[in-house]
Nucleic acid binder design. Sequence first.
RNA 1: GCCCGAGUGGUGGAACGGUAGACGCACUGGACUCAAAAUCCAGCGCCCGCAAGGGCAUGUCGGUUCAAGUCCGACCUCGGGCACCA
Length: 849
Amino acid sequence: MARYNARQAETRWQAAWAECYAFAAQRESAESKCYVLEMFPYPSGRIHMGHVRNYTMGDVLARFRRAQGYNVLHPMGWDAFGLPAENAAREKGVNPRDWTYANIELMRAQLKAMGLAIDWSREFATCDPTYYGHQQRLFIEFYRAGLVYRAEADVNWDPADQTVLANEQVIDGRGWRSGAPVERRKLAQWFFRITEFADELLDGLDRLVRWPEKVRLMQKNWIGRSEGTQFRFDLSDGGSVEVFSTRPDTLFGASFVALSPDHPLTEQLARRDPGLAAFVAECRRIGTAEEAIEKAEKLGYDTKLAATHPFDPGWRLPVYVANFVLMAYGTGAIFGCPAHDQRDLEFARRYGLPVIPVVVPEGADPQSFVIGSEAYGGPGRLANSRFLDGLDVAAAKAEASRRLISEGRGRTVIQYRLRDWLVSRQRYWGCPIPMVHCVQCGIHPVADADLPVLLPEDARFDAAGNPLDHHPAWKNVPCPNCGAPARRDTDTLDTFVDSSWYFARFCNTAATEPVDAKAATYWLPVDQYIGGIEHAILHLLYARFFTRALKRFGYTQVDEPFAGLFTQGMVCHETYRDAAGEWLTPEEVEKTGDTARRRDTGETVEIGTSEKMSKSRKNVVAPDTIIDVYGADTIRWFMLSDSPPERDIEWTEAGAEGCWRFVQRVYRLVTETEGIAPPGTPLPENLPEAAIELRRAGHRAAAWVTEDLDALRFNRAVARIYEFANAISGAPPGTSAAVLRESLEIMVKLIGPMMPHLAESCWEALGHSSMLINEKWPSADPELVRADTITIAVQVDGKRRGEIAIARGANEDSVKASALTLDGVTRALDGRTPRRVIVVPERIVNIVT
RNA sequence: GCCCGAGUGGUGGAACGGUAGACGCACUGGACUCAAAAUCCAGCGCCCGCAAGGGCAUGUCGGUUCAAGUCCGACCUCGGGCACCA
């Protein structure tokens, strides 16, 4: 029995493809272009199953489009800056740069072993000075255009590690590495003005029809647009305060005004009021930890100031500082309407403030409508509201707003939840911010001739804090403006910046500009982007922002970077625990049926739920060991089979073996089927029915697989191919030699994008001297795809009672007649006369009694 | 709390409103073999029945329809996102 040697074949074909630069994209060729991109990996050390799934999907699409005649761009790079490299430096004493590039070497080899159709000539890492140097140019360009600015911001400061932490790195109010309580500090930081594009980024979502609805919705919520009115309250000390509200209609239900603890007015008042200062300090201490917010009670401090109601000069409202008012949203001050806002209600109950319902649900009596422990946020008519009485909410909003505006007290405002993007990081292993601080003349960009600002190679990682800040030789430079002694900005850019424009750089990685406008015009947008759902908001939003900014500077002509987005599911595995509750790796466990025992001791092991592969659960299976045993095609086939690509998939040894058996089966089918005509043999006329059936199966498979790959339904494509393989092996002996050849060639071509090495070997075994990679995708004959006879079901009163075979296009009366003579139908009718017979052509017959 | 998804055999999953369970995995029986592996053949939702056949089945309850896994309403369970956003 012929056996397919995956290892040998795979190295051989990978070398053959590389030799003819099979996957190099053609520069701006006449063919239609197709840019296929998977989210580039962080070089953590080794590839994992998630990478395999991601890159297999992209590869299938790239190869499929290539076979269809597209000029395909399918590049690969490395998202190479980030904390793990720096941690390795601190923990193991290695240089972050060496650590990163060593990982890239290893992972590149692993990806190449997967047989990916990648244009490796375009590879780069974001930590290459040739990449981050261009990023620095972009930063300065953004700065000059006002898209980058510096401002004081509240940040999470870890006093032990002496660095700013991202919100995700603060766990229960403590630094994730140091365990020290995180402080909120005001520091001057760099920001990207992403809010300038808030409206565009929101509106653009509607046009992203090939994005998952879910991701669009998440971005919409994240941007969080709300329309409202911003207006002024006059205060008893002669000052005033601006508030923002989406519900100016409820103004007659107001019972207090509240300021954020971080509001400038609060700070001013606290200077004279030690009680308030203490209250503010207490609010800051509770901080931003999620849990704290959830449990925190509504607390306030009465400033003793009074605010004048904007619609009634004689109506005075108390002014509080309240812990639930955020400085970061709106104006940092609100008016409280307890009847119609849950937070305001809790606050009012605690401090004994009035609760006046002003919106009454339709049908309820305004006199007896009382608010209990739940505020009423629904629709209704205004009451207790003087000139607004009787209006519905929308009309009352408009009227209240109109009055505030006409009195010169307010204006309509659109507020966003989206904040500007803070990009400063007190870290070494990132793109240095190309700015210089001069005591004489302020902040200036580094001169163009001095770019890129390279990271120093001799940084020290033995002290806490930012190594760049501890490196006088690097830090101290002359001011680019006045020449006086100055110092560099020692922060580096958030690594999300690196991944916000790499797809544009891929269009021409040799460009002397950050982005080659001509190449980008040809290639962008990315036709299909594939990656994890975890990037649904940040990365994808930042990339959308960058693309718009790049367009402003003439680098691109598109608004949106990714015309199609696909978010794939995770790779999971069963978990195992021994009697002591210790996690065990799959290799440590021997499974027989539903029971599992330890390989070493034979002890029975508890099988836990299937979860995302993770080191902590030890349920990780390394792709390279699987590739060593079964080959790349087997693991690729597994990733595409069974589960729909957007859902999670469970890795199982049994499933992998099943894929491996299919690999062998395909090879046997090609090498052991007897009586295959030589290449190029024309099909004879007057084929017997069995041969025509096989041809139909083949052409149908071609049509369906094409459809499925177009829609990224890989699991269905796989099922179609199994069906077709069954049809070939089930063909009766003596089936036309030419039809066998046609069928096998179709099958091999259909398998090509998914199991490319096996397909090449089969193509060769079928007697071809050319490579399959140069063959066109099979086209299906529509005549063969459509069946001549169709089997349709016959129902009586909606229950299936039999089936009839009819000719395509058979007339309704004959269909009806043969349906009514069916045994099962007469039995079910039991002498009754049908009242109605519904015939849906080529679908179904339903006889209604 | 608000906003999204998803519930189909032992299992992963198929199914333009039209034969529910394609295809894979697991399992069972058989062939081949000294034996095993590999391979091949057959079976495989549940209940009644020797069979032919019949009944019940897509989380639950109701509705629309000649016909509902699919559409509508309510509920249950699980998963995800956002969360003092005024």
